[in-house]
Structure formats: C-alpha cells, structure tokens
C-alpha cells in the first residue's frame, strides 16, 4: 500500500466509523432522553410522562427531626435501614446508627455506637449510681445544604438533588474515600462489595413515592420525624416550631438538615 492509498483508506474509514456511531446512537439516545425526563417515570411499567401527579423535586426540600427524649435505643431503625438499603450486616457499616451517651458524675463522657446484634439490653460499664445522665442519639447523614463531601469529590460523583438529598453516583465513584474523610459526621462508608462510597439517601426511592424512610417507618416512639421543609404543615415543620432545635457541629457551616430537639450539650 502506498501513501496515497493509505490516506484514501483513512478518508473512507473515519466517516464509516462515524456512521456506525450514528447508527448506534439511537439506542443511546433513548437512554439519555429517558434520563432527561428525570425522576417521575421511576419503576413505572406504564409509560406515564409528566401527567399524573408528576413528582417535581423543585417543590420539596427534605429534612429529618429527631427527638432525643423519645429514643429508646431499640435499634429497629438501624436494622430496617440495613434491610431496605442492602447495607452489609457487619456492625461497622452504617447508613444510620445510634450512639449511647453516658455522662458520669466525674463529668466523663463516654460515647459508643450500640451494637445492632446485641439482642436485648446490654450491661453498661458504669454502675447506675455513677451515671449523671444517659441517653441515646440517633445519627445519620445530615444531608447538608453545603455538603463538604460534595466539594471534595474529584470526579463529581456525589451531588445534591433539587429536593435536598445528597446522592452518590456509584457508576462514577472511584472509591477514593475523600468524601469519607471529609464528612464531619462520619456518615459515609466504603461499601465492601461495590467498593464505592455509600451513605444515607433518606431512602430516596421511598420518599419520592410518598413512603417514609425505613428508619422512620419502624420507629416505635416517633423519635424520628421525616418531613418536607417547604411544606407549611409537615410533621417536621411542626416539630421545629414547637421545640428548641439544634444541629450537629453548627460551627462548620454545613447547614445540616437533621434537626435535633432536646439535644444535650455534650453531643458532638
């Protein structure tokens, strides 16, 4: 083959490649346009576009309230979360967890994550009479309005949705753990199977369909309250109106959207 033939071949080859690309693209085109339409078509087998009560993320902003006084530390929420979201059963993988605070009379504060698998109650290291006060604090991703984890992601795999939930694109995540490190609330972990970052999504797949997050669903004392901050009368808005509310680590300006009522000053 001489140079002339080679170049001619090239000229023919590339448009041909382009052509195959164009032929292939209708398939891809469908994919993307489906995603374009966004959230509402979800698992719907029937093609229902924007019509029937289409979910509009712009009109919601989700948050969670937690009433410390009501939490009995039964860890139903932790188990439900693991079941709903395929979180590994090992005690060190959590999307939500419960911390037990014990403050003894000599002002020593011990915090431990209570073990889901410990059936029934467990003995405390401290004697009852040494305890000044003690309580449980449920924790989870704060779905910050200014999330530090989103800022540090080098590949843009994690982002805030319009309705105020921080999600991870598992296809894009490269498992570098920057976000795990950056989260001031230790709410993220690296999923051992997918090797990507995983975190609480407020059970996004449930709330968009009008169900409660699994943890809120099973809470026996309504210590967890889920709601829409944009709604005028959601349970969350009511809770926030009737209680003095604290958020965790307010000094970091992350603007958390998990609101605690009756939070003890020792809680970090």
């Amino acid at each position: 083959m001489n140079k002339r033939q080679f170049l001619k071949g090239l000229i023919l080859f590339f448009p041909a490649g382009g052509l195959t690309g164009v032929l292939a693209s209708p398939v891809r085109g469908k994919e993307t346009s489906g995603a374009d339409k966004g959230t509402e078509a979800s698992g719907a087998k029937t093609t229902q576009p924007q019509s029937t009560g289409a979910y509009d993320p712009e009109r919601h902003n989700y948050g969670m309230g937690i009433e410390i006084d009501k939490c009995i530390g039964c860890s139903r929420c932790v188990e439900a979360c693991k079941a709903e979201n395929n979180v590994p059963q090992e005690p060190f993988f959590f999307r939500t967890w419960i911390e037990r605070y014990v403050i003894t009379k000599d002002r020593e504060v011990t915090v431990e994550s209570i073990n889901v698998k410990s059936r029934g109650t467990r003995e405390l290291a401290q004697d009852d009479r040494e305890i000044l006060r003690s309580f449980f604090v449920p924790k989870l991703c704060n779905q910050c309005a200014h999330p530090p984890c989103v800022q540090v992601c080098p590949v843009g795999a994690t982002f805030s949705t319009k309705d105020g939930v921080v999600l991870v694109d598992a296809n894009r995540c490269i498992g570098c753990r920057y976000c795990v490190q950056a989260c001031p609330y230790a709410a993220r972990y690296l999923h051992p199977e997918t090797k990507t970052a995983d975190k609480c999504t407020f059970c996004y797949h449930r709330v968009v369909k009008g169900l409660l997050p699994a943890c809120v669903e099973v809470c026996p004392t309504q210590a967890r309250v889920f709601g829409d901050l944009k709604s005028k009368a959601s349970r969350l808005v009511r809770l926030m109106r009737m209680n003095k509310i604290h958020v965790l680590k307010p000094s970091l300006n992350t603007d958390p959207k998990v609101y605690y009522a009756q939070l003890d000053g020792e809680v970090r």
């Binding site: 164009v22 979800s42 709903e84 598992a170 894009r172 449930r206 669903e217």
Partner: peptide
C-alpha cells in the same frame, strides 16, 4: 459520539443516578 453524554453532562449523570436510585426495590411496604 463515542463518549456517552452522561459522562460529560452533569445533568444527565445526575438524572441517571436519580433514576437508578428510584429503581431500587422497596422492602418495607409501610
């Protein structure tokens, strides 16, 4: 043509993440 659009456009990759999220099975009926 070759690089999928969802790799380039943030909107698309976010929409597809939301889509995947919504497709997750519901285990607690409520």
């Amino acid at each position: 043509v070759l690089i999928p659009r969802s790799l380039i456009s943030d909107d698309l990759h976010r929409a597809s993440t939301v889509q995947r999220e919504l497709a997750k099975p519901i285990k607690f009926a409520g």
